[in-house]
Simulated scan of single mutants.
Amino acid sequence: MVGRSSVIFGSLGIATLMAIFAPAANAAAPMAGGQAPGFYRMMLGRFEVTSLSDGTHPFPVHTVLTKNRDEAGSQFVPLDQVAPGEADALLAESRLTVPVEGSINAFLINTGSKLVLIDAGAGTLYGDCCGKLIDNLRAAGYAPEQVDDIYLTHLHADHVGGIAPGGKMAFSNATIHVSDADASYWLDPEQEKKAPKLLTSMFEGDKASVKPYVEAGRFKPFKSGEQLVAGITAIPGAGHTPGHSFYMVESDGQRLLLWGDVVHVAPVQFADPDVTLAYDSDPGMAKKERIEVFSKAATENYWIGAAHISFPGIGHVSARDGHFQWVPTNYDAQPTSPK
């Protein structure tokens, strides 16, 4: 005798049975949105180096890129006037178009005895695009109160704003350092009066950012050549600002140069190092410094940490057929052992 259930199942057919007993399908998964936490870690000898992203922002390529148009190199005008189409053509070679998202990177150096932050991002000074450094610092396994010293390459908003977002001290135990030449310029009301309107907001952002540290006695400019943290040396790199500084980090024979604002738009300025910036205080000097730094970095093969090259901004400079190139770091999933 055939059971009633067997008769019913038999009449339904295999395809119908599969549909009845199949697990219910999930609704379409929502888009996750956003990026992964913005930190990247490498070892430099015995030092741990962590690149931190403060975010990206649309970089005004056609507004701020400049170039000298006279043989003496004293007249700097918008790049589009000197070489129409150059910026767009060079960007296209890297599959990029305007507007280009510009990275704002900072670098955390753990020497084993000191935790040092080089630059601090824009904080709230650039709006909602940025100010992600603190969250990424925490994601990287550190807390702001663990930072001992902050060394700034210069006092432009996208390097100093992160020390005091909204005017509030973000690093409760850190001392802020910058070259005395930069501090003397950007914190001087008389210089602000004489500066072009393009830079006015920089002066205001600087004063608001350093104010809580000045009041706490923890804003200490340094003179060129002074001893900094063991393994970290300041190198004058004037041109972009009056006291723009590079920092050479050295451990066990390995070197990393944190060069601040040597490069803003890598596809353009590696191909044409003569391209300068409207923000340069001395564009002729900035151009000269860039070419010298490119040449030395390519020759001596040390690491570079760049504030405005696509995150993580770590790599090398190479030279081929008379042209400079950026070689980004190869991703290393196990950066815990000195190499």
Rank of each mutant, 00 (worst) to 15 (best):
G217Q: 08
C129T: 08
L117C: 05
E86P: 00
V160R: 14
V263E: 09
S172N: 10
M202Q: 12
I118S: 00
L228T: 06
D88C: 02
A238Y: 03
Q254H: 09
R95A: 08
D54W: 04
K197P: 01
Y40W: 01
P30C: 13
E101R: 13
M202N: 14
V116C: 06
V77R: 11
W259C: 01
G55W: 09
G284I: 08
D149N: 07
I176K: 07
I232F: 08
D88I: 01
G127R: 12
E71C: 04
G315V: 01
V64D: 02
S5G: 09
V263K: 05
P189M: 12
S103I: 01
P273M: 10
K132H: 05
L12I: 11
T16P: 01
N26A: 15
G225F: 09
A19V: 04
V265P: 01
V100E: 01
A183R: 13
G284L: 15
S53H: 07
V327C: 03
D332Q: 10
G284K: 15
G260S: 15
H323N: 06
R290A: 02
I235F: 06
T153Q: 07
P328N: 07
S209I: 07
D282P: 00
I314V: 14
W259Q: 09
I118W: 07
E93G: 03
A87P: 00
R290M: 07
L133A: 08
D158T: 12
L96Y: 06
A208Q: 14
S53P: 01
H264Y: 15
P144Q: 11
Y213I: 04
D252V: 02
F59Q: 05
T336E: 09
K168A: 14
F324W: 15
V317P: 00
T97E: 11
A266T: 02
R46D: 08
K197C: 03
V2P: 08
G127D: 06
A24H: 02
A25W: 03
L12K: 09
V265L: 12
P312V: 04
H159K: 11
Q269N: 11
G313Q: 02
L228W: 10
E86L: 15
G260F: 09
A297S: 06
A298Q: 04
G260D: 14
T56R: 10
L137F: 03
G121Y: 07
Q81A: 05
I14P: 00
